[in-house]
């Protein structure tokens, strides 16, 4: 008896080790990737690199236009998508009756989240660039990206609204407030930190997206900064791709690509870190209530 028990425990030990190895493998690979990118990119980073325009046909100088372009595109997308996402979430959680309509809307949101990014690019090209005649521009790109992040914002807002305790609503309704007054004055303020987290996650996701802006917003080379939302623009992720695949002076341009990758990676990871920290803090708070 004791021998079979110890045999079973040994089996468990072996199995757990193998499972753990999987996780370790994953983490090691990722550390390796970060190490390579950082070790090659950090050398290039300097104050000039992030505050100056490219010079000499993209072989020298900085990446300021790409940083600004990504900033405009990302902020534009989040500003457009947030009202839409939050209102959708309010409808799903506070207004709709359980049943078919909710189910259909949720299938819509889930499927939108699963659409390949390059298909969003095709959609943006077909409708914003061509049909609405907005051309290849920041505006077209931001519109396209706003659809890409809509599902992220809907889900985060929904979660935030659901986690507002029901007593809040009941207290407000019992005082004679209408449903909308309750949502506006009680539920939304309480859900704001969660919704904000969703928006920040959306920013993190959208800042690195390349395929949706490929045909709708970006250009490889631009001497000047964009003047209006109807100008085309450079963008960080596209800049990396363009430098390594279309560049004509690889010896000088590939280091710039690594530098750009470090800037983009730092931006995205910082944004995610902020969102995750916010969520952990906020999550703890609701537990205490």
């Amino acid at each position: 008896m004791s021998r079979t028990v110890s045999k079973r425990h040994r089996k468990q030990k072996i199995a757990f080790t193998i499972l753990g190895l999987g996780l370790v493998l994953l983490l090691v690979f990722l550390l390796l990737m970060f190490y390579f990118i950082l070790s090659k990119g950090l050398k290039v980073i300097s104050w000039e690199f992030i505050t100056q325009k490219p010079r000499n046909g993209m072989t020298e100088g900085g990446i300021l236009p790409a940083i600004l372009g990504t900033l405009y595109l990302t902020l534009g997308a989040v500003l457009l998508a947030t009202p839409l996402g939050v209102l959708t979430a309010i409808y799903l959680t506070e207004y709709a009756k359980k049943g078919k309509i909710i189910r259909i809307i949720r299938i819509g949101v889930n499927n939108l989240a699963g659409v390949p990014s390059v298909v969003f690019g095709l959609f943006g090209l077909g409708i914003f660039v061509k049909y609405f005649g907005l051309g290849v521009s920041i505006f077209s790109g931001a519109l396209t990206l706003s659809i890409v992040i809509l599902p992220t914002i809907v889900r985060a807002s929904e979660e935030a609204i659901i986690s507002v305790p029901d007593e809040y609503r009941k207290a407000s309704l019992a005082l004679g407030a209408t449903r909308w007054q309750t949502v506006k004055n009680v539920v939304l303020p309480a859900a704001t930190p969660g919704i904000l987290t969703g928006c920040i996650l959306g920013i993190g996701r959208v800042a690195g997206e390349t395929a949706p802006i490929l045909f709708t917003a970006v250009t490889f080379f631009s001497m000047r900064l964009p003047n209006s939302i109807f100008d085309e623009t450079m963008a960080l992720p596209f800049h990396i791709y363009a430098l390594v695949s279309e560049g004509t002076f690889p010896a000088k341009q590939i280091p710039i690509a690594y530098g750009t990758a470090v800037v983009l990676l730092t931006m995205v990871l910082l944004i995610n870190l902020v969102a995750i920290t916010l969520r952990i803090r906020y999550g703890d708070k609701t537990k205490h209530q």
Partner: peptide, 21 residues
Amino acid sequence: PIIEMLAGVPSVIYGLFGMKV
């Protein structure tokens, strides 16, 4: 959270690593 953060790493970064390393 680390794994969630990895989901946020842009695909061009993976591409750059795959291409050059």
